[in-house]
């Protein structure tokens, strides 16, 4: 797929999102609710506990919360796309198109997320930075950008892989729900991994989830020593590769199933 075509897909899906203005204003509010609830929560418990916990100060936990939340919002993706197309059979149109299905979906996802980044992530970040005095240190930025890209790919691939289950199951909502449950709990978008009991933390590091929001957020907020960032990036890249392979295998199997059994 040519970069120009990729960008065209990005643009189309970006534009699809703008179409409903009412939604737009509501969605900003939606993102802000989470920022507000968690900053309020951390302030309360940190104030009661003397102002520090698990390596965080009140100020740094609030920075983390805002940054992780903005990343989470900017990474919004449309889960219903592929399952919908599989269910109503229009995925066969995708099959006869001379473009890579994976890249086409990535392009659409990027367009979707770009809208959420500009329309929601940025306003929420600016407002929160002003309200809570959040600052992002500049020296970690290059590593953070790499980490964000890897995190985005990882989340995309996890979603993509889950969506592909639609080839085998009539109803994939349960899987989607399960995925959200795990991501909410284990990806660091709401709770930093540092708050988990020390007994379960080694277990978490064997799972891909914390590389979605936790890793880029700790790099962005400067909680990782610059020397340690490459280790995290390498782990992220390994997970991206693993899911890329898994999704490619599943896509191939799903496509064959469709071709042979007619859906």
């Amino acid at each position: 797929m040519s970069p120009a075509l990729f960008l065209k897909f990005v643009e189309v899906s970006f534009r699809k999102e703008i179409a409903y203005r009412f939604d737009y204003f509501v969605m900003i509010l939606n993102g802000f609710i989470y920022v507000f609830v968690f900053t309020s929560l951390w302030r309360t418990v940190f104030a009661a506990g003397g102002g520090t916990f698990g390596g965080f100060t009140t100020k740094s936990i609030i920075s983390y919360t805002v940054v992780a939340m903005v990343v989470r919002i900017s990474f919004s993706m449309d889960d219903g796309l592929i399952p919908g197309r599989v269910r109503d059979g229009s995925v066969s149109v995708d099959l006869i198109r001379p473009v890579s299905f994976q890249l086409m979906n990535l392009a659409q996802s990027v367009g979707y997320s770009a809208f959420h980044l500009f329309a929601r992530g940025l306003p929420i970040f600016v407002a929160s930075a002003w309200l809570f005095g959040v600052r992002v240190p500049a020296e970690g930025l290059p590593a953070a950008i790499v980490s964000l890209v890897l995190a985005y790919l990882l989340l995309f691939l996890i979603n993509f892989t889950t969506s592909l289950l639609a080839f085998w199951f009539v109803e994939i909502f349960p899987f989607t729900l399960l995925k959200y449950g795990l991501i909410n709990l284990l990806a660091g978008g709401l709770l930093p991994m540092d708050f988990f009991p020390t007994s379960v933390r080694p277990l978490l590091s064997y799972l891909p989830f914390q590389h979605i929001f936790y890793s880029p957020s700790v790099i962005l907020t400067g909680r990782v020593a610059p020397g340690n960032a490459p280790v995290i990036l390498a782990e992220q890249a390994a997970w991206v590769a693993a899911f890329a392979v898994l999704s490619a295998v599943m896509w191939r199997a799903g496509r064959n199933k469709l071709v042979i059994q007619g859906g």
Binding site: E11, F14, R15, I18, A19, R21, Y24
Partner: peptide
């Protein structure tokens, strides 16, 4: 167009 759609938001 994209710009027009953005304008139509308001």
């Amino acid at each position: 167009g994209t710009f027009g759609a953005l304008k139509a938001l308001f």
